[in-house]
Write a protein that binds this DNA or RNA. Structure first.
Lengths: 226, 226
DNA sequence: TAGATTGTTAATCGATTAACAATC
DNA sequence: TAGATTGTTAATCGATTAACAATC
């Protein structure tokens, strides 16, 4: 299969947010195909696996350059490499997890990290009982040393799995230590400077959205009155 | 404060998806205010706490009926009740968790469930070592009994925290058992009938979106060429 | 009254979909 | 060639933003 030579560079900002949100899903599927030695895939197949339309897939992939072959489909390996580069997953990103409760431990032990572009480089907790315990390759360090641990570990991304009450304080210290990308599992909206990106994950929010639709199956929503 | 009497009923479908996604965040903030005995809140304050604009807040809340007072703001308790009803959180929704690994345990022990409209009513796992162990109030049951456990527990929402390899099978059985609302933590897109709602939570996807923006700070994205 | 804040409109923006020419 | 599938356009749809009259 011949592929067109790229004619230039595309500024990252040119990729719409909605596309950036779907590329990881395509990446996940293509990784599976590549493992299975599948060579070619169509936008229709990707769409089915990602739960979107094939038109969306083609439009999303066109943002990365013209990588398909009309009448044929996309070369799995090539496309995977392309998405990997677009998402910036060529090298592993070092991640620090703050809060080594059950959730923090669960994330720390997630095997899929390596294959998906990340490596946990430090675990922090405030509980003296927890500090010093081992978790796979890592020993839990004291959150008091947050700044020095971030510096020495080279962590670039922070994951907050503390209780809500400590999350903003931890966040402020991560930001002060130079972290500008944060995933927050604590059920509180974090305040950060505009150059810091926060992704919020809240199970209860997901459940509440489901509850809305579940209720909608049965009843009309009463408007509020005093 | 006098509030207008609602003139009719609004079909749930009238509330846009984007609004449904933000109502839980407002709900979270209003719960905090109510605990602190705050009486009145402005759209500006809600917006700041939720990380959105005040115009969005007002528009979202207007979908629930006219609940604010011009020149004053919103009555915290009234508004909280209103959102609680809109989301269908008046009674607790019974939830079954399938997969009691570290993540499943972490979710099972999340104290915030009760206050946010949910109650875990069953835990299922396939590992004989795990089955029979206690987790708070609940004893882990065998996934072999999934159908009967769903029936007897009355679970309406399912949470899948199994490895990716078993997720689709578990999903199929949950659907067959009557579950139509699922939160999936396994890194795989689930196939479900069109009347089943699935919310996907994948930490690696969140990290990959951050990675994209992190990389964007530094370099232009190279287009793909063969 | 004067100041504050909602509810709503109109304008803008971005994302999705349908369709099809290009082309393998 | 005939069938298949991409890349792209134009149309549609939905969400966000700005602005301000209504009104407390």
């Amino acid at each position: 299969m011949t592929l067109r030579v790229a004619t230039g560079r595309r500024r990252a900002g040119d990729i719409p947010d909605a596309t950036v949100g779907r590329l990881p899903v395509y990446h996940r599927f293509l990784t599976v195909l590549a493992e299975r030695q599948v060579d070619i895939v169509s936008s229709e197949e990707i769409a089915a696996a990602a739960g979107v339309t094939s038109a969306s897939v083609r439009k999303d992939l066109a943002h990365l350059g013209s990588n398909g072959a009309r009448g044929i489909g996309y070369d799995v390996r090539h496309l995977l490499g392309c998405i990997t580069r677009a998402l910036g997953l060529v090298d592993e990103w070092p991640v620090v997890i703050v809060g080594v409760g059950r959730l923090g431990q669960a994330l720390a032990s997630y095997a899929g990290f390596g294959t998906r572009g990340f490596r946990i480089v430090a675990l922090l907790d405030c509980d003296p009982e927890c500090v010093g315990t081992r978790n796979g390759d890592l020993t839990v360090e004291s959150v008091r040393d947050l700044e020095s641990v971030v510096r020495s570990s080279g962590a670039v991304i922070g994951v907050i799995t503390t209780p809500a009450s400590s999350a903003q304080g931890v966040c402020d210290r991560l930001v002060a230590a130079g972290i500008r990308s944060i995933v927050n599992f604590a059920p509180i909206t974090l305040s950060v400077p505009s150059d810091v990106e926060v992704r919020m994950v809240d199970l209860a929010v997901e459940l509440q959205i489901l509850a809305f639709h579940e209720q909608r199956r049965a009843v009309a929503i009463p408007e509020c009155s005093a």
